[in-house]
């Protein structure tokens, strides 16, 4: 969700929301629009394989630098931005040619191994020693090896992007068939890192198909420290999931567009407020959940997969004993 694939007002609105909520948002791979600079403390700079708009300066702005190796929605495929979306504003920020599709290669031309990955991370740390380095990968079957390799390469954060994520622009066949679902990947990695004795030295972030507050809680109970939300935020901005994101002027809500006129449909302040609303509502659900379990902080939920049951594996009567989430909630 970078400049070029969604409207600038959406990007800035998300950053403003991140500031109010004391969390982070990410540039995506389209470069760092000047409009984001005031929110730099809450903006992650992404370094993706196309290196579009990535300069030393934009790496130095960031509290967290994310090296995007792969994306769960399309692992093994590079990024692409169709020619129609490369308007003059997009081309200017990425310093490319108007109307020509932009390809991000797969993988990084400079990173073909763990040791290259380490060198890559060292490079980011050299340019910005105060930044935390996050490595974003998809969820291949050996995702546990990838995690421990990234940890040893010096990453502070490991971000797994499972399948089912992605805006409508990710090819369906890729979205549904390549990567491992995140609910398998998280416990696998959590357990492996725990056995290796390094789980508490690295932050695990999950994303991909996490749609609501209870999905977040489940991801955390499975072993993630936190999550990244993409599509749900867009839904908060009235995205209707029509799947037209890839074309330049097809977005009915002016979200996934770079068209100047359509982009006016979303206003920064409105976007900010809608996103804040969504997370505050989610927070209520989380608080309720924690209260029920007697936990004081959501941190205590990390890895508590003992608190989850898999309804599909239960007999009919037993299943009936579980209320479906979200739980009925009261105003706290």
């Amino acid at each position: 969700m970078s400049f070029g694939s969604v409207a600038l007002s959406v990007i800035v609105g998300r950053a403003r929301a991140a500031r109010r909520l004391n969390t982070l948002t990410c540039t995506g791979e389209g470069g760092y629009p000047q409009e984001l600079v005031p929110y730099a403390d809450n903006v992650i700079t992404q370094v993706a394989t196309g290196l579009f708009g990535v300069r030393e300066e934009t790496i130095q702005y960031a509290p967290v630098v994310e090296l995007k190796y792969a994306q769960g929605a399309k692992p093994g495929l590079g990024g692409h931005l169709l020619g129609d979306k490369v308007t003059s504003a997009v081309a200017a920020l990425r310093e490319t040619v108007v109307g020509n599709a932009l390809f991000s290669p797969f993988p990084f031309h400079s990173v073909y191994s763990v040791e290259d990955n380490k060198k890559h991370i060292d490079w980011v740390k050299e340019m910005n020693p105060r930044a935390l380095v996050s490595v974003k990968v998809s969820t291949p079957t050996d995702v546990d090896m990838v995690a421990v390799g990234s940890y040893h390469a010096g990453a502070h954060i490991i971000h797994f992007d499972g399948s089912y994520g992605g805006t409508g622009a990710a090819p369906d066949i890729a979205k549904k068939n390549i990567a491992m679902p995140i609910e398998y990947a998280i416990p696998k990695v959590h357990r492996f890192l725990t056995e290796e004795g390094v789980r508490d030295q690295v932050c695990l972030i999950a994303s991909g198909g996490i749609r609501n507050a209870m999905d977040v809680a489940k991801a955390i109970a499975l072993g993630a420290d936190g999550v990244v939300i993409g599509t749900a935020e867009l839904v908060a901005l009235e995205c209707i999931r029509c799947g037209n994101c890839e074309s330049g002027r097809g977005c009915a809500r002016g979200i996934a567009t770079t068209d100047a006129e359509l982009g006016c449909m979303v206003d920064e302040a409105w976007a900010e407020q809608r996103i804040v609303n969504m997370y505050t509502a989610w927070r209520k659900q989380w608080c309720e959940l924690l209260r029920q379990y007697g936990l004081r902080s959501i941190r205590e939920l990390v890895g508590r997969s003992d608190l989850l049951v898999h309804l599909d594996y239960l007999e009919e009567e037993e299943r009936a004993r579980y209320k479906s989430s979200p739980v009925e909630h009261r105003v706290l």
Partner: peptide
């Protein structure tokens, strides 16, 4: 020099 490639300028990538 570059020529305008259909794969680049088109509305849909071939891969789909």
């Amino acid at each position: 020099q570059a020529i305008t490639l259909a794969v680049l300028a088109g509305a849909k990538p071939r891969s789909e």
